[in-house]
């Protein structure tokens, strides 16, 4: 299926499965912003979906791991929003209230045993109303040689996510970094302070509404605007 066909109504996922994550809407053909689109495709409107929930079987050991997690969490459907398998990677989307339960189970159960959490990466989707901020935790099981990803979302109005430092102490600095850059407040973190930016820095630089900054540069008599003000095709 081509990228365009994927967005035709008949190709969208059936209504029964959870709605795919729509992070943005693209308009026009060549993605140029600021100037008129003279290509004749200026009216084109295409939503941008992240890969949606996957149907069983997930394939490989993914089913086994999901089954085991389902056994450990009696209210699996409540804790896990959806399971996504994309590009051979398994992602559990966890409701933020249940994050610590899920992480504890993933770490402690001998059949899962994800003993390492490799930090947390924030992502800001300003157009995904109510779920603007995502926290992504890559986990590694050295015992079973497997990787899984846990993803949690929260809103800009209530940017609170429970800290997992009690389960994975190594996430201490990573959570501080994500607070610093995205403004996600990790409840229960022992000392959630800025780590990369100066202590008195205003704002959270890696949010999409935070400008890149920069000054125009002169090159052979012409002014080159800063990168975020140049014509973009993305």
């Amino acid at each position: 299926m081509s990228e365009l066909d994927r967005h035709l109504p008949e190709n969208l996922p059936p209504a029964s499965s959870p709605a795919p994550e729509t992070i943005d809407v693209r308009r026009g053909m060549f993605r140029a912003k600021g100037t008129g689109d003279t290509s004749g495709y200026g009216g084109l409107v295409r939503p941008v979906h992240l890969p949606g929930a996957s149907e069983r079987p997930y394939g490989g050991w993914f089913d086994e791991a999901a089954d085991q997690l389902e056994r450990l969490l009696p209210d699996f459907g409540d804790a896990i929003e959806k399971v996504v398998v994309d590009r051979d990677e398994l992602t559990f989307f966890v409701r933020k209230e249940r994050l610590t339960d899920v992480m504890q189970a993933l770490r402690d159960d001998p059949n899962l045993r994800f003993e390492m959490c490799l930090g947390v990466s924030g992502v800001h989707y300003p157009n995904e109303t109510g779920r603007e901020l995502h926290a992504v935790y890559p986990l590694l099981s050295v015992t079973h040689n497997r990787r899984v990803r846990v993803e949690v979302a929260c809103s800009d109005e209530d940017p609170h996510i429970p800290s997992v430092t009690g389960i994975y102490p190594g996430n201490d600095w990573h959570e501080r970094e994500t607070w610093d850059f995205f403004g996600i407040i990790f409840d229960g973190h022992p000392a959630l302070t800025r780590i990369e930016m100066p202590d008195d820095w205003p704002g959270h630089p890696q949010r999409k509404d935070y400008p890149l900054g920069g000054i125009p540069v002169e090159y052979k008599g012409a002014q080159v605007p800063p990168p975020d003000e140049r014509r973009a095709y993305s």
Partner: peptide
């Protein structure tokens, strides 16, 4: 100037 488009999604490579 424009580059190539990369399909929607996320990966973690280590």
């Amino acid at each position: 100037t424009e580059g190539f488009s990369v399909p929607v999604g996320q990966v973690y490579t280590a």
